[in-house]
């Protein structure tokens, strides 16, 4: 407040940019939607007040690598357990082994990431001190406490060739828990006040399910013998369709709070995820057609499959990081908290 523009005739001059002004509608102007393109905004700019532009909410204190990485690895592990059980039942031992090792490895690394992200890692066991259905993190801990040992047991039995009976049981049980591991993480994000996570709670589990399926298919395409990857290719296509479709539906339903998905770093990550997942799924589908036609053996099939798999894995990871960063951005801008709540109040009052 250095300049003085209060005169005998009233206030003169423009409002100061950092000034707090009164009322519900007198606040700063929102920056334009998709401003980087220089398009004229179609949606009228939202006016709102805030406390000097400071966020109302606190962004999650989590490290992106730990938590977005965990979202990715959890999805990869959960869907891999499905491929493992399917491969075992349908006589595709190569596919089953890759999927079992993938699930066990991914979930082990993600447990490490989760403990690493705690403020007091030595107290991680406190997660299992109570059973609380209102806490997705608590239920998730119990889920992982059941799921992780099963995947490790299934992988160990497969690799050592011993205890085949219990190994098959562990494979089946992990296939039952796997889908829950892949989708509960969406509840973990949605059950917060973070606008862009909470408002997407209807579709986000389906986005994560599709993304997990695409990632698991990608891993199988990279590592499993090409002759056994038919199911993985189909899973890649189905997963990609589910992920991209659910994500579009989610953004359309969310209104204003979909904006963080379309700006800055989250936008770049999610655009990359879309391209990689689409390309990976298309390539996987083509590879299947090529394989069925019997054209090109061995190396000729292996290389496109590996490229498709790598694209799917990278796309799935990019999606998780994009969703993570978009949520953080939505918590840091008071507009995404205040404007939807104001609209809600206005709608309620008539």
């Amino acid at each position: 407040m250095s300049e003085s523009d209060v005169t005998r005739n009233g206030v003169e001059g423009a409002r100061h940019g950092r000034e707090a002004v009164t009322g519900a509608h007198a606040g700063r102007r929102r920056r334009r939607r998709r401003g980087q393109r220089g398009e004229r905004p179609v949606v009228p700019e939202a006016h709102f007040s805030s406390y000097y532009g400071r966020p109302v909410l606190k962004a999650p204190p989590w490290k992106a690598l730990d938590i977005a990485g965990y979202l990715f690895l959890g999805g990869l592990a959960g869907a891999s357990s499905l491929l493992a059980a399917g491969g075992q039942v349908t006589g595709r031992p190569g596919l089953a082994r890759v999927a079992k090792l993938g699930a066990a490895g991914a979930i082990t690394v993600s447990l490490g990431a989760l403990v690493h992200d705690l403020g007091r890692p030595a107290r991680f066991v406190n997660m299992l001190r109570v059973v609380k259905p209102t806490s997705p993190m608590n239920l998730g801990s119990w889920l992982l406490a059941g799921y992780a040992p099963l995947t490790v047991a299934a992988a160990a039995a497969d690799v050592t060739g011993r205890l085949r009976g219990p190994g098959a049981g562990a494979t089946a049980a992990s296939a039952v828990l796997g889908p829950a591991v892949a989708t509960y993480t969406a509840v973990l994000l949605s059950d917060t006040a973070v606008p862009s996570w909470h408002e997407g709670y209807r579709e986000l589990p389906f986005v994560f399910a599709g993304s997990g399926a695409a990632a698991a298919a990608g891993l199988a395409l990279v590592c499993a013998p090409p002759a056994q990857t038919g199911p993985a290719r189909r899973m890649a296509v189905l997963g990609a369709v589910a992920e991209l479709g659910a994500f579009r539906l989610m953004k359309r339903r969310m209104g204003l709070v979909a904006e963080p998905f379309e700006q800055g770093r989250p936008h770049r990550l999610l655009r990359g995820a879309e391209l990689l997942t689409t390309a990976g799924a298309a390539l996987a589908a083509c590879a299947e057609a090529v394989g069925r036609a019997g054209v090109g053996r061995h190396l000729g099939r292996r290389v496109p499959a590996a490229v498709a798999g790598a694209a799917l894995l990278t796309g799935s990871a990019a999606l998780r990081f994009g969703v993570f960063h978009a949520g953080v951005a939505s918590a840091q801008d008071p507009a995404y908290t205040v404007v939807p709540q104001r609209e809600r109040l206005r709608a309620r009052s008539g």
Binding site: G27, A182, A186, Y201, R202, P205, G210
Partner: peptide, 30 residues
């Protein structure tokens, strides 16, 4: 909001039963 307070705060767990339902549906779909 002028004081930095949310105009219409809602406890996030109000929607939690619906969230679990959606996640269960998604798990079955997967």
């Amino acid at each position: 909001e002028v004081y930095g307070l949310p105009p219409d705060p809602v406890v996030t767990t109000r929607d939690l039963p619906a969230m679990w339902k959606q996640a269960a549906l998604a798990a079955v779909s997967l």
